[in-house]
Every structure is written in C-alpha cells, then in structure tokens.
Design a binder for these strands. Structure first.
Lengths: 258, 258
DNA sequence: GGTAGCTGTTACTAGAAGTAACACGCAATT
DNA sequence: AATTGCGTGTTACTTCTAGTAACAGCTACC
C-alpha cells in the first residue's frame, strides 16, 4: 500500500469561499481530496461494471481497495457518491458531445451526432447507465437527486441554446424550458427502452430519434413562419455561434473552447 | 375488526390455469384475494398520501389495519406491491383518458385531452406519482420493474395506435415503437420537471406539450407526403375507429367500450 | 514536540425488508 | 361431527446494508 504522501500539486480550484485559515495545513490537501474523490468515483464505475447496478458500498470500497469508512470520509452518503458518479457520466457524455458541436454540418447532422453520442455512451456503459439513470433515490429530497440534477443540467443547457435561437428568430420562447426537458426525457426514455430490448440497431434508432426531434423543432419554427432545410449546412450568425459555444462549455467543464 | 367471512361472490376470473383441484375450498377464495389485494393497494395509496413516497411496509400495514405478514401473504415483496400500486395509477389514468378517446374532436383536441388528463392525475397525486414513477427498484430485474412495466403498457398501446395509423396511411412504421416510447418519456419527463418546480400553469404546459407532440407527428406524416390540419375534426375510417377502441380497451380493463 | 489533517482498520448500530412459528375461524369434504 | 384446506391474524425473529464509533499511525506545518 503506497498510501498517503501525495497531496498532488495544484488542481485549479482557485478560490472556493472557505474560511481563511491562515494555516496552510488545510490548504495542502485541497487537490488531494479532489483526486481522491475522482479515484473513488472511478472505482465505483468499475465496481458497477463487475457487480451490476445493485452494488453495495462494501463492494465499492473493496474495489477501491479501502474499507467503507474511508469512502464515507469523502462522500457524505450513498446519494452523494451516486451524484458524483452521475457527474462522471455527464462529463463523459459531454466530452463526446462537445467536439461535435464545433463541427459544421446541417441541423440533421448535428442532432444526429448528439443523439448518437448519447446512445453510444449508454451502450458502452449499460450497467452504469442503469445505476445512474434508472435508479432513483426517493429517500432524498428531489432537489438533490442525482438523476434529476444531471438531467436538469443537460436540459438547461439545451434550454439556453434553444432559447437563444428562438429569441434570435423572434419567436415565443415560453415553451422552451418545457420542451427541453421533454426532449431530454424523450431521448432518455427511448434509450432506456432500446437498452432493454435491443430490437433495432443503434443507427436506426439514431435516425428515428433524429427525425422526430427535428420534426418537433421544425414544427415550432414553422409555426413562427420560419422554414429551414434540415439538410442544408447550418448558417450561424455570430450570436448563435456564441450560443453553441456557451451551451457546451457551461456543462462539460473540461471540454473544448471555441 | 370485521375480519374474515367475506369470500365475495363471483369476480370474473374464469379460468386461470390452476391445478384442477376439484375441491371447491380453494375456488371460494379467488374473488376474495383479489378484493383483498385491491384493499391493500388502496391502503398503500393512502399511506403514501400521509407519509410521502418513502413509506415503509410497516406504515402501509398499519394504514391497512393489519400487520406486515398479512401484507406479505398477498404481495410477494415490496416490488410486487409497488407494481400493483403502479397498475392502480395506470388504471386511474386510463379511466380519465379512456372516455376522451370516444369524444370527437380535432387531433389537437385529442392530444390535449390526453396530456391534460395525465397532468391532472400527477397534480392530484403528486406523492403517489413520485412513489411510482420517480422511484425505481434496481434490486429487481428490469423486466419486472413497475415503472418500466407501466410505461411499456402505455407506450405499447400508443405504438399500436400509431402503427395502425401509419400502416393505414401506407407509411414506414419502423420507428413507431421507438417514437411511442419516446413520446411517453417526453410527457413523463416534462410532467416530472413541472411537478418539481411549478413554473407554469397546467394549461400552459398542456398547450406546449400538445403542440410539440403534434409537431412531431405532423413531421412524420409530412415526410410521408400527408398533410393534416390539426384543428379540423378528425375523420376516421372504420378501421381506425376500431383501433382507438382497441388501444384503450387493452390498457384500462374496466374502461368504456366503443 | 505538538497538532492538523489526512491515512487506515475492526466492529459496531440502526432501520427496514422479509420470515418463522404459532393460534384461530369458516366452510367444504368426509 | 370431525377433518382438512385456506384463509384470518399475531409477535418476535433474521438478514441485509447503509452508516458510525473508536481507535491507531503517518506527514507536514507551526
């Protein structure tokens, strides 16, 4: 056991409002704690891979090579760990989605790439997916529920993106938030269903979802008198280009930068 | 305690492949058991109302005026009870939706009524909703998960409905299943979000959802070269009328009959 | 040296799901 | 009338897992 003695240099968390101790013995561990959390999250992901979505804390601790109390020093409880795992998954997803946002392409292609990235991730980590998305924690207040949180993050960034588009095109943006959550839910539900009974190829499902998502968006645009060809390369004004940059950046902390 | 002594006459379960005992002492209880299950399910719903979605089996038993083991004679385990509660909710929903299917009206109106019924139910029983929908049971195989089951039931009947429409209109129906699950998920996710932060009226959300659902369906139809006015009263051939009857009937056992 | 803040352990508690074992009541069978 | 099948109900247990207590050691700052 090469324990201890690795306070890991920097890690950029410049100033999160902690009390100004003056004593540098607390400062020193900042980065270390983050690294440790990450380490445990990864162990959890591995444990889920081995044991399935029903892993217990003991299994996770074992996978991480420590005993339970150590885990509980870094995560207040199971929900907290789950939340972190959820974030891990979201980050992964955003890493896959992020780059595709910078690529040019038609709307169809853009939607397709996002959907495809999502389905790719859940196909790659089915157990993790079930652990994070299919499992809920009713014993915790809704606001802190990992799934809700993560879905909200994604839906919010979609909201922001769509909202900017809508406002730029001078359309009523009142429904944007509901639609965003709805679309996210649609993709999730479809993926969920697909994962259980893989009755069609990923490509096919991607196609179908892309189409219906586009139809939904197109309908909103049409009702505002705007018609866009989904297969034409998308022309973005500087405003909207900025938007896509913001939407992605805001979510996948470590991703790209336009 | 007016216990025992109520084997309830008939209840139509004509022949579910039980061993042919010949002894009528087993026959006698058939109906009673069903009635008892229903009774416990209702007690569970009440208990959820009092204690919130985190109710324990003890609470439920107490609410029903019995002790735990009695509960376990009628439900193999918690998941089984949850499944039954889910069915109760689905039945309720179908009772609300069912009648609206027989009413005439434009597509917009029809979609609207269904969405509105759904939102009405979850608004009326928020805790029950959270209990059933937001809570999942990862400790059980996916196939038997209450939520999945109930969503599948709804999505399947939608599938059947849409599929018949599509085939009647000679369009590719390959995506119907995915779309159905997606649409169901969309409504659920939106309702979920709305329930947590009621940032708009139920009417508004109903409008927005109705619009986007119609847009999605309209897109599919348009891509097949068919254009329908969503505000025109819907003309149904005899085939399709039969379909709507079947789709609903298949789900809400006790509902109407065209 | 003293102390802060980690490292780690074993062995416990707490609470909820689910079970065992027992006693009673009714009605069909014998 | 007695037996027997299938319910009624109970209290008190076991089991499982999240979470905790209590203890001991290492390293770096003061």
């Amino acid at each position: 056991m090469s324990h201890i003695s690795r306070p890991v240099k920097a890690v950029n968390t410049p100033s999160r409002g902690d009390p100004p101790h003056g004593d540098k013995r607390s400062e020193r561990w900042r980065g270390h704690r983050q690294a440790r959390r990450a380490e445990f999250v990864e162990a959890t992901v591995r444990a889920i891979g081995h044991h399935g979505a029903e892993v217990g804390m003991d299994d996770i601790a074992a996978e991480a090579g420590v005993s339970k109390p150590v885990l509980y020093r870094h995560f207040s409880d199971k929900g907290d760990l789950y939340l972190a795992v959820g974030e891990w998954g979201t980050d992964l997803l955003m890493q896959r989605i992020g780059p595709t946002l910078d690529e040019s392409g038609s709307i169809h292609q853009r939607i397709r790439r996002i959907v495809s990235a999502y389905l790719g991730v859940i196909e790659e980590y089915p157990e993790l997916y079930r652990f994070v998305v299919r499992r809920n924690f009713a014993d915790r207040p809704v606001q802190t529920d990992p799934v809700t949180t993560e879905k909200t993050v994604i839906a919010n960034s979609l909201s922001r993106l769509l909202g900017e588009y809508m406002r730029a095109l001078e359309l009523d943006s009142g429904g944007v938030e509901a639609w965003s959550h709805g679309l996210v839910g649609m993709v999730q539900a479809s993926g969920d269903w697909w994962l259980d009974r893989q009755s069609m190829s990923r490509e096919d499902l991607t196609d179908y979802l892309t189409r219906i998502i586009w139809f939904a968006i197109d309908g909103v645009l049409r009702s505002g008198g705007i018609v866009i060809d989904p297969d034409e390369p998308l022309e973005l004004g500087p405003d909207l280009r900025a938007v896509t940059g913001e939407g992605a950046e805001d979510v996948g902390e470590q991703a790209h930068r336009g």
